[in-house]
Every structure is written in structure tokens, then in C-alpha cells.
């Protein structure tokens, strides 16, 4: 269980990124944080990841306040962030160094199968396409068998085809062991395809504007009427008034 309790975050330059965020996420739930840029969604995710700390309030995993990256939490970034000097298999084992050699190898084989990259175990990152690199990053997060996966705009740097493919892939992986997924995205469709619940944030300062439970059965058809209706509603919630940002700056 993840609790976010009254989290405020003020940056050193005085900017208030988050104000009074309260959120509870059940084990196995898929939750998306959506919002325009500057709404603090990534900051909130980084607080849960233990990479940043709230100015006020706290985030708790299973009753423990998060003060550092948690061993049961995996993080997937917008970029693959692979070590260019390590092979695919070595990159996946990056976070496994405390385990016995054999266990490492066995687990690596398992996750390589999961992301369909068994033949690329010995490849170097420079030989991979963007989508493949991101799959390696997913495998690196999965190999530690986390109970919660945090994803920070994980597919936004990929082309549309690869993105849809990886979204489906993520759902397959989720269907196997049901880890909690907390996803940051600015892609409304992505949020609708994946989530049980969507949290809409609004900026200046970042706060929760609205929560939306998505009860469409999976797999979801992006073209269904209900899907389109929800998409329209979400876009309305995001308050994408053109030019507003420009005026403020």
C-alpha cells in the first residue's frame, strides 16, 4: 500500500511544485498521473522513488516513510538510461549485485524472455533501437522483482507504433504478477489504455484537480465510443487553454 499524505514540495528557488497532495494506492492498482507541464507530476513520482523529498508531509510504503530509494520499488525513466559500457545482460544485472551469480543469470534469462530480447543478451546499448533500449530498461526494473513499478513518461520518446506496442507489453507484464503501477504521462490515451484510475493534476501550484476511475474492461479498444468520450472529458479536465502559459511567462 502506498500512501501520499499532505505532500508539499517547494524548490530552492521558491517555486511551489506541489501543494497538499493526498493519495492512496492499493497493491496491484494501475494509476496514472496526468497534467500539463509544470503540474508537478514528475516531482511527485520522484518523491515516491526516494530521489526527492517533500518539504512537508510524507510518502509511505507499507507504513514506512520513504527516505531513500526502496528495494521493492522499480523506476523506469523517460530515457532508457543504460550504462553504455555494459552489455544488455550486464545492464539488467546492474541492480542485482548482492545475489549469487547463478541466481542473477537465471533471473536475467527470465526477464529477457519477458521483454523478448533473449537474442540480444550480449549486445551493447549502442546497437539497440529506442524501443529495444526501453525494453532493456523495463527488464532491469523487473529483475529485482519489485512490488511497485514507477514509470516516468516511459514511452514518450518513442514513435507511435513502438509506443502502442510497449503499452500492450506493459499490460502483459502486469497481468502476470500484478505489481502496482504508478505512471506519469502527458498522453491521455496512454493513461486511458493502462489505468484503473487517473489522477489529473493542475499547475501553479501542482495539486490534484480530479480523480477518474476507469472501469472499461481490458483489453481496451482505443476506438470505442466510451473510450473516446472519456478522452474528451480528460482533455477538458487538463485545461489546455491555448496561450495561457505564454501569457503567464
Amino acid at each position: 500500500m502506498l500512501y501520499i499524505e499532505n505532500v508539499h514540495k517547494q524548490f530552492d528557488n521558491g517555486l511551489l511544485a506541489l501543494e497538499g497532495i493526498d493519495l492512496a494506492i492499493k497493491p496491484g492498482e494501475v494509476v496514472s498521473l496526468v497534467g500539463t507541464s509544470g503540474c508537478g507530476k514528475s516531482t511527485l513520482l520522484r518523491i515516491v522513488a526516494g530521489l526527492e523529498f517533500p518539504t512537508l508531509g510524507a510518502a509511505l510504503i507499507d507504513g514506512e516513510v520513504i527516505t531513500a530509494p526502496h528495494p521493492k520499488v522499480g523506476l523506469i525513466f523517460q530515457e532508457a538510461r543504460l550504462m553504455p559500457w555494459l552489455t544488455v545482460a550486464e545492464n539488467i544485472q546492474f541492480g542485482l549485485k548482492d545475489l549469487p551469480r547463478l541466481e542473477q543469470q537465471w533471473r536475467t534469462e527470465q526477464v529477457l524472455q519477458k521483454v523478448h530480447l533473449t537474442n540480444f543478451a550480449e549486445a551493447l546499448p549502442r546497437q539497440l533501437s529506442g524501443g529495444m533500449a526501453q525494453r532493456v530498461a523495463i527488464a532491469r526494473a523487473l529483475v529485482t522483482q519489485p512490488s511497485m513499478l514507477l514509470l516516468d513518461e516511459p514511452f514518450s520518446a518513442l514513435d507511435a507504433f513502438t509506443r502502442t506496442q510497449l503499452q500492450d507489453h506493459l499490460l502483459d507484464i502486469w497481468a502476470e504478477d500484478h505489481p502496482t503501477l504508478l505512471l506519469v504521462t502527458h498522453d491521455v490515451e496512454e493513461a486511458l489504455v493502462l489505468s484503473d484510475r487517473i489522477i489529473v493534476l493542475r499547475p501553479h501550484p501542482g495539486r490534484i484537480h480530479r480523480e477518474l476511475a476507469i472501469e472499461l474492461p481490458r483489453p481496451r479498444r482505443r476506438t470505442s465510443l466510451e473510450f473516446q468520450r472519456l478522452k474528451e472529458q480528460l482533455i477538458g479536465d487538463l485545461d489546455l487553454t491555448p496561450g495561457l502559459d505564454l501569457v503567464k511567462r
Partner: peptide
């Protein structure tokens, strides 16, 4: 900085961070 952050996510100690991220990246 992004690679260093990956090291932090996997809770590497300062020494491990030097050996496994900084050293090869600086080479």
C-alpha cells in the same frame, strides 16, 4: 547525472557508485 541516478535507485554505496558508474564513464 541521469546515470548516477540509476546508481542511486539501486542503492549503490559511494564506493560502488565510483567503481561502477563514475570510473567507466570518466574513462
Amino acid at each position: 547525472r541521469k546515470l548516477v541516478e540509476v546508481g542511486k535507485i539501486y542503492r549503490l554505496s559511494q564506493l560502488q557508485l565510483v567503481r561502477r558508474v563514475f570510473l567507466p564513464a570518466t574513462l
